[in-house]
Amino acid sequence: MKIYNKLVRDRIPEMIEADHKNCVTRKVEGHELRNLLEEKMIEEFNEYLEDRNLEELADMLEVLIGLAKYHGYTEEELMHIRMKKYQERGGFEEGVFLESVTIKKES
């Protein structure tokens, strides 16, 4: 028997059973769900750092959508806010690194 004790995608139990194996699961809610989603984000981020591939980025996005839903938002609302911020502030495509800010002297 292998112990996992972690949050998994919704269809993982049926995939395990289709592989002629048994699994024990339980439903988590509330603060426990939020904490597990946050742990999952760290797990997925670490996996991204190891592999640096699109699949790990997609996994991180799925966890972000799960966190948004936990907080009562839809995926569409999350993407809308993302686009609004992108339009107002831009993205990260240009690699702008802010080193410092000073107050301009008036002439």
Rank of each mutant, 00 (worst) to 15 (best):
M1Y: 02
M1G: 14
M1C: 11
M1N: 13
K2A: 07
K2H: 13
I3K: 13
Y4I: 12
Y4P: 10
K6P: 02
K6V: 03
L7C: 04
D10C: 12
D10R: 14
E14Y: 09
E14N: 15
M15D: 14
M15L: 14
M15S: 14
M15R: 12
I16S: 09
I16Q: 07
E17Y: 13
E17M: 15
A18R: 10
A18M: 04
D19P: 01
H20C: 13
C23W: 13
T25H: 14
R26L: 09
V28I: 15
E29C: 08
E32V: 03
E32H: 02
R34E: 03
N35V: 00
L36R: 05
E38H: 07
E38M: 11
K40P: 01
M41T: 06
E44Y: 13
F45I: 01
E47K: 03
E47L: 03
Y48R: 05
L49V: 05
L49S: 06
D51N: 06
D51V: 10
N53C: 09
L54M: 11
E55F: 14
A58Y: 12
A58K: 05
A58C: 08
E62C: 07
E62D: 14
E62G: 11
V63D: 02
L64M: 13
I65T: 08
G66V: 01
G66T: 01
H71F: 15
Y73C: 08
T74I: 05
M79F: 07
M79K: 09
M79L: 10
I81Q: 02
K84L: 01
K85P: 00
K85V: 04
E88H: 11
G90D: 06
G90V: 11
G90M: 07
F92V: 14
E93Y: 15
E93M: 09
E93R: 10
E93A: 12
G95Q: 09
G95C: 09
L98F: 09
L98D: 04
S100E: 01
S100W: 00
V101F: 00
V101K: 03
E106H: 01
